[in-house]
């Protein structure tokens, strides 16, 4: 099947995903061979930065979603007061 762009082909997207996961694994494995010069005790744990980046991002998304429950409004919310101005 001919697609408009090579990125439209699901097979290529799958390959990209595979490549991404390989790079992810490599950055963690590299930690075993390279001295990462930990500045703080906590940083010397194996794969600390990877786990920390992943977990804090999940927390930020969950935190944002929680805030959104209270503060999300349709994007026409302010349209009324702008017509008055």
């Amino acid at each position: 099947m001919k697609t408009e762009h090579w990125l439209d082909d699901p097979r290529n997207v799958r390959k990209l995903w595979l490549g991404f996961l390989v790079v992810l694994a490599l950055t963690v494995i590299a930690g075993a061979f390279v001295d990462l010069h930990p500045h703080f005790e906590i940083e010397s744990w194996f794969g600390f930065n990877a786990a920390y980046g992943f977990v804090t991002c999940l927390l930020m998304i969950v935190g944002a979603k929680a805030l959104g429950i209270f503060l999300k409004k349709p994007d026409t919310y302010y349209a009324k007061d702008e017509r008055n101005e």
Binding site: F20, V23, V28, V34, L36, G47, G53, C57, L58
Partner: peptide, 13 residues
Amino acid sequence: ITQLQLLLFSGLA
């Protein structure tokens, strides 16, 4: 390496 770990796993998230 530490910066790539931090960023790429953020991308995974």
